[in-house]
Amino acid sequence: MARPRSDSPSLFEILEKPDFSFETKAMTNGLWPCAGLDEAGRGPLAGPVVAAAVVLDPANIPSGLDDSKRLTAVQRDALFDEILGKALGVAVASVSAASIDASDIRKASLEAMRRALAGLPLTAKSALADGRDVPPDLECTCRALVKGDQRSQSIAAASIVAKVIRDRIMTVCGTQDDRYGFEVHMGYATARHRAAITEHGAAHRLHRVSFAPFRN
């Protein structure tokens, strides 16, 4: 006799959704405003790493905030506009490919987050950063959250803003130099991108020459 099929989702189908609990705790502890920090562009072969800092309005949080990688481009664009319209503060910063080469991608990502936090139009008393590391030299306390963009709505909002801005930067790069297809792959190591690198070499000031395949 066949076993009846459950209509409940399996453990592996349940996705953790970000909430506002970390921010609420910060408010309770007198550490408000609390900013979410995240970056986009650690892995690509080209372009800057872009970070965003977002302070959400607790009374007006956009619906549907999530890790930018779990959203479609259409969803990200819509939420980007909503975040900018509803948040108490948003700031974006970037670190160029040349600066990444002069240091390393981890340090560059943390520096971009530091700059984004410093660029907010209001002074944050605390921050939540995606990942394992706290950006150095911050003017406030900060907590690092592994998979923070799937746990904190403020970090999720920052991940969306950073991703949308970086994608738009790379799209412009693609219109300025049509040899590589940046507007399609956003600088990631796709087969098309690698083939273009083999044919044309590195794009000056845009490719990260400290990354493979350039080092090889």
Rank of each mutant, 00 (worst) to 15 (best):
T24A: 15
S10W: 07
G131P: 08
A189M: 03
A51Y: 13
A51E: 10
I197G: 14
K147Y: 02
I61P: 04
V54Q: 00
G187E: 10
D177Q: 07
R208Y: 13
S159G: 15
K125T: 02
H204Y: 01
R208N: 12
A40V: 14
S152C: 15
A116L: 01
K86D: 03
K86I: 00
G148Y: 14
A144W: 15
R132M: 15
R192T: 14
R215C: 06
L15S: 12
G148E: 11
V50E: 09
D149C: 10
P213S: 10
G41L: 01
R114Q: 15
D7Q: 12
V55E: 04
V134A: 05
G85N: 14
E139I: 00
A212E: 09
A52D: 01
K69D: 08
M170R: 00
Q75R: 15
R194V: 07
R70K: 15
P58K: 04
A212Q: 14
M170C: 03
K163S: 11
G181Q: 10
A202K: 10
L206A: 06
L56S: 02
R115F: 01
S126E: 06
P62S: 09
A78L: 13
V92I: 12
R76I: 13
R166H: 09
L88N: 05
F214M: 04
A144D: 09
A157M: 10
A202Y: 08
G41R: 00
L15A: 15
S8W: 09
L206H: 13
P121N: 09
F20L: 13
K147G: 06
D67E: 11
K107F: 14
E199P: 05
E199I: 03
H193F: 08
A129M: 11
I83M: 12
S94R: 11
C34H: 11
E139N: 12
R166Y: 06
L71I: 07
R76W: 13
V95G: 00
V50M: 08
A53P: 04
H207M: 05
S152V: 10
G181Y: 11
S21V: 01
S68Q: 11
T190L: 08
R3N: 03
L138C: 05
I61Y: 01
D133G: 01
L37R: 09
G174K: 11
L128M: 09
D167K: 08
F214Q: 11
L206S: 05
M27Y: 08
F214A: 05
H193L: 07
Q75S: 14
S6W: 04
L122H: 03
G187F: 10
M186D: 02
V209H: 05
L45P: 12
Y180W: 07
P62F: 07
L110W: 04
F12R: 07
P213A: 08
H193E: 02
A59H: 08
D67T: 12
P121T: 08
L145S: 06
A26L: 11
R5W: 02
D81M: 10
M170W: 00
I83H: 07
G181R: 14
P4L: 09
P213R: 13
K107G: 04
S99F: 08
A35G: 01
A35F: 01
I197F: 14
P62Y: 12
S159Y: 15
T24W: 01
S103M: 10
G89E: 07
K25R: 14
Y188D: 03
I105G: 03
D81P: 00
A118T: 00
T171A: 15
L56K: 08
R151A: 14
V184M: 04
H185K: 12
L37N: 06
V164H: 01
F211C: 06
G47K: 13
C173M: 13
